[in-house]
Amino acid sequence: MFIAAMIGILVTMALALCRALLGPTVYDRILSVNMFGTKTVLFIAVLEFLTGRPDFLDLALIYVLINFIGTLAVLKFVRYNDLGAEPEE
């Protein structure tokens, strides 16, 4: 049963990678990479139940936070071309 969930997650990751390679604008690529990160978290969580190693969930929890900060950092870099820029109003 975990194998079926893992196959579904892997198919979704492949579709997200296709859109990240095809995407006409940079925002399509950022959306695809964000979704790929979320699916990686689910993949690690299912893999923990598949292999029986209980220490993978800490990695998944860290990966959620890194994914969020990474998406916002890439968005700011695309908008301002500088990560230390002051936001304009």
Partner: peptide
């Protein structure tokens, strides 16, 4: 648990198809 896992996987695949 099986129903939740299978439904979640199907929704993930539908969302991926929508993304593509």
């Amino acid at each position: 648990s099986w129903i939740c896992l299978i439904l979640g996987s199907i929704l993930c695949i539908i969302g991926g198809l929508g993304l593509l």
